[in-house]
Nucleic acid binder design. Structure first.
Length: 188
DNA sequence: CGGCAGATACGCT
DNA sequence: GCGTATCTGCCGT
């Protein structure tokens, strides 16, 4: 596991995180999930929270890579990012969808009884399933109650690159990546 | 299954 | 004040 890979620009880290796993310790249970969809956000990017410079909320995006950036939006949802490089730049990768690997029963409970892809096929859905809130923003993903495990990179042929979703600016930038044919992708 | 409205609070202008 | 890196339920096809 070489965490220096996260120092690369977000558009490079985003596809790299596909196939990697998230581990979450919650109420004595271990939850595991495989990342199947990501989006890159760079400081020079009008759609990024870091675009207009440092603020208390986005400070963590400008810090070292390998930490989480969790934000609250639409008055009720959390979304989680993996902070990446280059060092000193406000860049991060949004985790848009994951595939449950362990602890599906807990996730189902947390998701109001839903099952299958509805557990985690969206950035706010996966945060609800995994119990990720703003308390975990700025958390070191190498250790503690929420961890990222780097797995070997996927073959390029298994990765689809396209435009991002749910934004109003820089809509044409192709920085959304997902695993081809994964049923857990938020939207094709 | 696709489109639309409503929920609801926070950060930034 | 206003817009939001969203989700859900409800409607129609």
């Amino acid at each position: 596991m070489d965490w220096r890979e996260l120092d690369e620009p977000a558009e490079q880290v985003a596809p790299r995180l596909l196939g990697c796993t998230l581990e979450r310790d919650l109420d004595g249970q271990l939850l595991r999930a495989r990342i199947v969809e990501t989006e890159a956000y760079m400081q020079t990017d009008a759609a990024s929270h870091s675009y207009r410079g440092r603020t208390p909320r986005t400070e963590v995006m400008f810090g070292p890579s390998g930490f989480s950036y969790v934000y609250f939006t639409y008055g009720m949802h959390y979304c989680m990012n993996v902070v990446c490089g280059p060092a000193g730049m406000g860049a991060a990768v949004l985790i848009r969808a994951v595939e449950p690997l362990a602890g599906q029963d807990v996730m189902q409970e947390r998701r109001g009884g839903r099952s299958g892809p509805e557990l985690t096929n969206g950035p706010a859905k996966l945060c609800q399933a995994l119990g990720v809130t703003r308390d975990l923003s700025g958390h070191d993903l190498r250790t503690g109650e929420l961890r990222l495990r780097l797995e070997p990179p996927l073959a390029a042929a298994a990765v689809v690159q396209t435009t991002r979703i749910g934004i109003s600016r820089a809509k044409d930038v192709p920085w959304r990546f997902y695993i081809r044919d994964s049923p857990y992708v938020s939207k094709l």
